[in-house]
Design a protein around this nucleic acid. Structure first.
Length: 422
RNA sequence: GGAGGGGUGCCGGAGUGGUCGAACGGGCCGGUUUUGAAAACCGGUAGCCCGCAAGGGCUCGGGGGUUCGAAUCCCUCCCCCUCCGCCA
């Protein structure tokens, strides 16, 4: 979230950010409530101050004077209660509004409201020219006996899948390869809890807005994570870290769950858009320094690009325009990987910087060398997400006979270099 | 799931109704001393909110209550530890 004080003092800047994103948020209501809360708190503090002063004098007083002081203090105490209630009510009304205020888009964010206005930053690799009619990943995988979609639907409903046989090994391989790559660069692997508390979801910005995209376990007050960014960024929530320990480079490895509400009829075929998937994620927690944030943003973007290059998959990097940006993010690069079955690029990675937006929600801070406590900056990016990456591997690696060549770097993990019909 | 014990500052650990935001020890920072270091000694060392400041308010796991006054009493929730049962 944004600093309430900042919102109070720079309302037009905040309003402008909301407008760039094409959002509607009741900023004025928040500002009005804030004014009321501020006044109420002032009155409360003054009253409490007076009461504290009296209470402290009680032990040193006697007889008549003592009785009077206690009387007067009692009166003040009675005035305190309604004030506290009023403040609590105001804060309760403010909280959701405050949490809904989106992050300020970074100045380098391209203007625009829809994905069509995202800016392509660069391309790597040449989409393969087929001298036969390429199949999509589902056709390939079914023919190779590597998936069972119908029975997954029977057992688990829509947007689910069974991976089978060598495809399971291939998934493990690509996850393992990716995790090792970032681990070798100092990202400490974390296998996190998948079911987390509301605070972790709220702290990373996936609640309250976004509740319809996450699976809630109401009986146990828990939420299934849609990304390990949630638990891994929240690891140090509420802590004051030592500056010398920063930056933290963490890698999350987990299953991820998404309801995909509102996407009916979109990407319904195959393994592209599913309710459950595996992901290796990179998370960086660094100092409160915009330049540092930008540097780490390039670093985590580069790590993902290195993974795709090692896999030999063509991709492009796009900078999301203001309207396509998530509410919590200040700047996001997506990486889209070439998928012959779509005859186009499909999103496989998303690298974002938040500045202190998440850190504020998580109360994630550090003590600087000067002794001052500041909010950290946070960033994250996909390293690899499966099965979506399998879509690209299968489709790009296919051969005319329906077999699939496995990227060289994965061969040691799979134990073979080509997936053949059984 | 049953029985018991416990959650205090960076750490250890006092504190069971009154000037306690918190003794004492350790750590850390600064200073004195020293050729330098160690030791010793002196001082400092939580966060949040309002305020230009002075200052005020809030916080001793979270929330609520009793009281003129709560770290201290009561209720409730959470977490940790030990033992028993069950299970991977």
């Amino acid at each position: 979230m944004l600093d309430l004080r900042f919102i109070r003092e720079h309302p037009e800047e905040v309003r402008n950010g909301i407008q760039l994103r094409g959002l509607r948020v009741d900023l004025d209501r928040l500002l009005d409530l804030d004014r009321q809360a501020l006044a109420a708190r002032q009155e409360r503090d003054d009253t409490a101050s007076e009461q504290n002063r009296l209470s402290k004098s009680v032990p040193s007083l006697k007889g008549e004077e003592k009785a009077k002081a206690i009387e007067r203090s009692k009166d003040l105490g009675k005035r305190l209660k309604p004030l506290d209630e009023r403040i609590a009510a105001l804060e309760a009304e403010m909280r959701p509004l405050h949490l809904e205020i989106p992050n300020l888009p970074d100045p380098e964010v391209p203007p625009g409201l829809t994905a069509a206005e995202n800016r392509e930053v660069r391309r790597w690799g040449e989409p393969r020219a087929f001298d036969f009619g390429p199949k999509d990943h589902l056709a390939l995988a079914e023919r190779l006996g590597l998936v069972d979609m119908e029975r997954a639907a029977k057992v688990a409903g829509t947007r689910t899948y069974f991976l089978k046989g060598d495809l399971v090994l291939l998934e493990l391989a690509v996850l393992r390869f990716s995790l090792e790559l970032v681990a070798s660069r100092g990202y400490v692997p974390h296998a996190p809890p998948l079911l987390v508390k509301r605070e972790a979801m709220e702290g990373t910005g996936y609640l309250p807005l976004g509740a319809d995209q996450a699976y809630e376990c109401t009986r146990d007050d828990g939420w299934l994570i849609g990304t390990s960014e949630v638990p891994v960024t929240a690891v140090h929530a509420g802590e004051i870290l030592e500056e010398a320990k920063l930056p933290l480079r963490y890698a999350g490895y987990s299953a991820c769950f998404r309801r995909e509400a509102g996407t009916h009829g979109k990407d319904t075929r195959g393994l592209y858009r599913v309710h459950q998937f595996m992901k290796v994620e990179q998370v960086v927690v660094c100092r409160h320094d915009a330049d540092e944030s930008r540097r780490f943003h390039e670093e985590i973007l580069g790590n993902a690009e290195d993974v795709l290059q090692a896999l030999g998959l063509p991709y492009r990097v796009v900078a999301l325009c203001a309207g396509d940006l998530g509410r919590s993010q200040s700047f996001t690069y997506d990486i889209e990987t070439w998928m012959p079955g779509r005859n186009g690029y499909g999103e496989t990675h998303s690298a974002s910087r938040y500045y202190d937006y998440q850190a504020r929600r998580l109360n994630l801070r550090y003590r600087g060398a000067d002794g001052k406590v500041r909010f950290c900056h946070t960033l994250n990016n996909t390293v690899i997400a499966s099965p979506r990456i399998l879509v690209a591997i299968l489709e790009n690696g296919q051969q005319e006979d329906g077999s699939v060549r496995i990227p060289d770097v994965l061969v040691p993990f799979v134990g073979k270099d080509v997936l053949l019909p059984r």
